[in-house]
Nucleic acid binder design. Sequence first.
DNA 1: CTGAAAGCGCTTACAG
DNA 2: CTGAAAGCGCTTACAG
Lengths: 337, 337
Amino acid sequence: MGRATLRDVARLAAVSPKTVSRVVNREPGVTDAKVAAVTAAIEKLGYRPNLTASSLRRARGRTATIGVVLENVANPFSSVLHRAMEDVARDHGVSILAGSVDEDPARERALVGIFAGRQVDGLIVAPASSNQGYLTAEILAGTPVVFVDRPPAGVQVDTVLIDNRAGAREAVGQVVAHGHRAIGYLGDLRSVVTARDRLQGYRDALADEGIRPDPAHVVEDLHTEEAAERAVHRLFALDAPPTALFTAQNLVTIGAIRALRTLGRQHSVALVGFDDFPLADLLEPGVTVVAQDPWAMGRLAASLIFRRLAGEYWEPAIHEIPTRLIARGSGEIRPAN
Amino acid sequence: MGRATLRDVARLAAVSPKTVSRVVNREPGVTDAKVAAVTAAIEKLGYRPNLTASSLRRARGRTATIGVVLENVANPFSSVLHRAMEDVARDHGVSILAGSVDEDPARERALVGIFAGRQVDGLIVAPASSNQGYLTAEILAGTPVVFVDRPPAGVQVDTVLIDNRAGAREAVGQVVAHGHRAIGYLGDLRSVVTARDRLQGYRDALADEGIRPDPAHVVEDLHTEEAAERAVHRLFALDAPPTALFTAQNLVTIGAIRALRTLGRQHSVALVGFDDFPLADLLEPGVTVVAQDPWAMGRLAASLIFRRLAGEYWEPAIHEIPTRLIARGSGEIRPAN
DNA sequence: CTGAAAGCGCTTACAG
DNA sequence: CTGAAAGCGCTTACAG
């Protein structure tokens, strides 16, 4: 039992601890004979350097770890962000501590506190709370912080976003261009900034054509597949139902598709979703979406952290990643009349 | 700049470092007046305890971190495992360091080394390599290690698996029960243990009915959607093509579905897949699968770690999580004749 | 109830 | 080329 320490290695190799340290860190200027003795002792004892101890004393106390606070590591969008960040971090010999907030502001704050306490070298946050002033101390202490997916409030830091409003406008523009005038909006919680922006983009696209949306066709605060499904059923029970739907979030899109199937309307009602999802092309009809690029977002967010750590300086800014309309059929259905 | 330390807080509050430590750790026996002074100083300085320093000295040096080595944090199966582990870890106040191996044995070993060097309290590994003898030192040092998804070799540790052979037998049994005799097998790399087990289950199911599979119908070493797609095209170019397919892995299933669509045979060829995937029920026909339960696997793996950390002892064992056949249509298509 | 001393495993800053 | 001393930020084990 009991892991071998650097001292144990030094004793066995009959050298000083400092010499072992030099060998472990591949510093030059140690005789081949001592290197060999130390290497043999390391091998024999199964010695593994204690990285938490070395980071404690090492210059600037870097831990070679960054903290990543995501909506939910199990959802496809978050997990791709995570993986993209891992790839960049790995190139820098850095590991990732990740956690899920589930849209809970208290959890976001708790995770940041935990990661900061673990002395992470940088922090990437997909925020759920409405204010991140609690990060001020970390930022002043010099820890690079980057926001992804949603903008920060109360602090000025680099932020990687898509243009939600423009993306939504393009999505809705697609069904408008195919002859629709009565277009339903189905969106996430209005507490979520991106949801508000997407609703705004929906209104923009309609305003472009001088269309005034029927208030009954605008449904907010849908956060689950089931809620979206029920909302679609209610829309099509109206006297004047929409002929097209804009579903402003992943799960909402899937819930809406289920409902259209149940109603037998999947080939007659047009649908454009925000966010791509696996197998969207294999459904019938294929689902037209405005896609985000989480790979690009994750890679960019992580590289901003490493550029700051390397000493680069620039004014914190918003970095926008473009969205892309992918037409697969559902958005190109024309209205019946 | 420069983060405040416990010493700084002690100085400002005019108490000893030990008293600050007591307050931070909520140890009893400090006057209310001193607690108040310390709390105020902590607030004023924005002090955050350095967890890496405290874990260094603390009894048994626990870091409240576990390391999780997964196939790929971005794939749905791995990311659900990850999330399930996070939920359990969170109940214990423990964070997760996660990394992806991408089926690369060297990367698996590197990640384990990195996490061990960071003094994780436990290690959960979904292995890619063929031998994990390199873990012996960690295990002897008392670090709990649990394998998931695939069994270890060269070490004896708790392992959370599904019964791949029985699951495959049930999957193939489903198409046999619907009248098929010529059933194709499409599977992952034969270097992967679970792939070999699933092939064995396929053979079992056929043997149950006295069927000898046509060797031309058995295709191994498919690791991507594209490879699976091509393989299906080749199968249906044979003089005697199969009437049903067993696709022994997620991506293989999806590749096969694409190919059947291209061939216009998705409603005439039966298909059962191993592993469930999102939207399998929304495809036409719905895809019949044998589903694993990654939530249960992840939760169990993590709880085994925490039971060991709590001091429980038992002989390392294999813990099997049952699979479940989900009939959705594709597996219940009957042969033409 | 409180604090001074020693030490966790390592690296820094020196001296030889 | 090598090592003895001090210290990273905290907690342990004592003493008062």
